[in-house]
Write a protein that binds this DNA or RNA. Structure first.
Length: 276
DNA sequence: ACCCTCACCTGCACGC
DNA sequence: TGCGTGCAGGTGAGGG
């Protein structure tokens, strides 16, 4: 279920826990998890590789391996890594296993079977279908006011849908899109090219703030960072300003938060603070 | 090129 | 209690 901030936290945790370790063997238990390679290739490509570092691009986790390979992972809705002690049982929906040095076992579990993995040569990483069309990182210098303004100007779609488009903004999902629009006081159904320069700038700032804040929260909320049994999730019990608060009072004006459906997905907003 | 709908799975909260 | 329904934070394929 993670968006950029949670994926960032997962990447940091994994980097801390498994960077420098060798994968002695790897097993793919559900072939469709890595549809571009076979289970045999998965095992062969990963066996013996040292995990040099774990990073992130958009909502993708990137495991840089020695020998010029990168393991790409998308958690989608329910993907999750766990680092287990030798001998402990696999979680119910374990779809991949990485047997590491020192009897550590990294497992990937995924209740909804939406997760995705691929192994690619690092030299072509940025040209892969997964990463090639991804928008700039919203917390990088590339993500400027001008970039956001140009993006918005290029489409008549409702601004909320534009924010969910990974080719426009990398890493935003349904929650943080709603939170950013609320902070910027922009109505989710407003046509993207109808935003004034002022609102566009507010939205740019709100996106950056929302993500920075959420990364901090997610880091703080991690229970015990050194507990190998705990999953690598950020907090589940964060409270959002508008997300999932239908009917509850707006923190700014007290009006009831409303829910509407756009492209089959819930949008939450304050009808008084976020006018068309 | 754009934009929408649907499919991919399981589990959970809800109303009857 | 049990069963049906709708919903879930993501994305890509396929269609108009």
């Amino acid at each position: 279920m993670p968006e950029l901030p949670e994926v960032e936290t997962v990447a940091r945790s994994l980097d801390r826990l498994v960077a420098g370790k060798k994968i002695l063997a790897a097993a793919l238990h559900r072939e469709k998890l890595a549809p571009r390679i076979t289970a045999a290739e998965f095992a062969r490509l990963l066996a013996g590789r040292v995990i040099e570092r774990v990073g992130r691009r958009g909502k993708y986790l990137l495991f840089d391996l020695d020998g010029g390979l990168t393991l790409l992972v998308h958690l989608r809705m329910s993907g999750r890594f766990r680092l287990l002690e030798d001998g402990s049982e696999n979680p119910r929906f374990t779809h991949a296993e990485f047997f590491l040095e020192e009897d550590a076992r990294l497992v990937f579990e995924d209740q909804r079977h939406f997760g995705y993995m691929n192994v690619v040569p690092t030299t072509v990483l940025w040209e892969t279908r997964e990463l090639k069309l991804l928008a700039p990182e919203p917390l990088s210098g590339e993500f400027t006011r001008e970039y956001v303004r140009a993006c918005l100007a290029s489409s008549r779609r409702p601004v909320k849908l534009l924010l969910l488009d990974q080719r426009k903004v990398a890493g935003l999902g349904n929650i943080y899109a709603a939170e950013a629009l609320y902070r910027a006081r922009v109505h989710p159904q407003k046509p993207a090219n109808g935003l004034s320069a002022i609102k566009s700038n507010r939205l740019h700032a709100a996106i950056v703030e929302v993500l920075r804040f959420a990364i901090d929260q997610s880091e703080l909320a991690k229970l015990d960072p050194d507990d190998l049994e705990s999953g690598f999730y950020g907090s589940d019990d964060q409270s959002w300003l508008v997300y999932d608060r239908e009917g509850a009072p707006c923190h700014r004006c007290g009006n009831g938060i409303r829910r509407l459906v756009q492209s089959g997905r819930s949008s939450y907003f304050c009808p008084r603070c976020q006018r068309m």
